[in-house]
Design a protein around this nucleic acid. Structure first.
Lengths: 221, 221
DNA sequence: TTTGAGCGGAGCGCTCCGCTCCGATAGGGT
DNA sequence: ACCCTATCGGAGCGGAGCGCTCCGCTCAAA
């Protein structure tokens, strides 16, 4: 199991690797479109592989979904880090991050909410969530220090805001992404601290990470 | 069928009327929570009536859903008209409308998106949609004339924005409403034309009503 | 007391899903 | 060239859950 092979994979091994990549992309898309209720057969069909091969790779639908969920979180972490490194200005970094995260909608979306609330929390999931929190904290803290982001906006708002910006809409993916970016522009204006005066406070108590944990994991089992 | 009865209803008739009201409210809630996929039995259960009574009133799930869909549109029309009449300022009217529409989330939500895209368009649905468009046009035109609403925002954006502001979230209804209002505040800031300078243009082409028709009705049959 | 319109809910028939199983396929060793 | 076997694809199984029907029961009206 843990053995690594050297050299370029050929033959059946090459096919297995290609299947793996196709499977991953297909699962991304299908889970993003239909959430947990997406049928496994649809994932196999879109990946162009058989059910047998899929179930050899992932012994159950739940394990597949957990894997995709973690991958989705890790992608957000990567996008947050990239934005922080490549954009000098904290505000631009935040905007860049939101755009990147939403643009990936066409490629399958953040995947966070899609399987949320129904799957049990594993150690791996918890660890990924912690890393995500750390990355988003960096993003938000930077903007707060600069004074360009309203102070009553927290890092826990980001995942929920992303979920609000990408609802399930049965429209061609391209147009959907355009609409998401359109409404993102509205939200970004609201997020930015105005140059003069201070913004009116947001309604209600701030979102907390504890809430997200409850939202993302199965309530009991 | 068209016969009206006079005086206070008593006995079985009274029970039928009460059932009707309960059924309506239950259908609102359940469709709002789970969309078209909501099982009819759940609606009957929550209304406290039997399947037989439900199916006497509505011969099929589809007819029930169409009825709720029209009722949802009519409620939005009512809220738009109320906001226009009771609020002297066009901007305040717009804000009031958004708040009212979202606050009803606890009572079942706008219901527009929930059955959207799967049901065929009937004449009644088309008529209700036309009335909704007229009401929203009044709201938006008023704000545009006053110069307080960004010009690249159209009345067709409103239903989509409402849908964006109320995604399906498995959280207690009270907290969900609070979150919706929280993010509405962000969006409202973005909608308002700033006192100084002009706002940066939104990404992408404006939303059109023709798009909504495609989104709300079954593609073919 | 009789009656029947209206009620509630058990269950029928069906669809659709997760998953298993097995014949087909095609590298790789000899 | 030949088998061997790891891997593949997909037909089909078992069961869950749905829309809807049907029927025995209730209770107001006569």
């Amino acid at each position: 199991m843990g053995d690594t092979y050297t050299g370029k994979p050929r033959g059946r091994r090459r096919e297995a690797d290609r299947n793996d990549a196709r499977l991953f992309q297909a699962a991304r898309e299908v889970f993003a479109e239909r959430g947990w209720d997406a049928p496994v057969s649809e994932i196999a069909r879109r990946a162009g592989i058989g059910m047998g091969s899929l179930y050899r790779r992932y012994p159950s639908k739940e394990l597949l979904a957990q894997h995709m969920r973690i991958a989705g979180m890790e992608q957000l972490v990567r996008q947050a880090r990239t934005a922080l490194v490549e954009e000098p200005d904290p505000w631009t970094a935040l905007v860049r991050f939101f755009r990147d995260a939403l643009a990936d909608q066409g490629a399958g979306g953040p995947l966070l909410p899609l399987v949320g609330g129904r799957l049990p929390a594993t150690d791996e999931v918890r660890a990924a969530a912690d890393r995500l929190r750390a990355a988003l904290d960096d993003l938000v803290d930077g903007a707060h220090r600069e004074g360009v982001l309203r102070t009553d906006f927290t890092s826990a708002d980001i995942p929920l805001l992303l979920e609000h910006l990408t609802p399930r809409i049965p429209v061609t993916s391209e147009r959907a992404t355009a609409l998401h970016l359109r409404y993102l522009d509205l939200v970004l204006t609201g997020l930015r601290t105005p140059d003069t005066g201070r913004p009116t406070a947001l309604h209600g108590p701030a979102t907390r990470w504890a809430e997200l944990r409850e939202l993302w994991n199965a309530p009991e089992r």
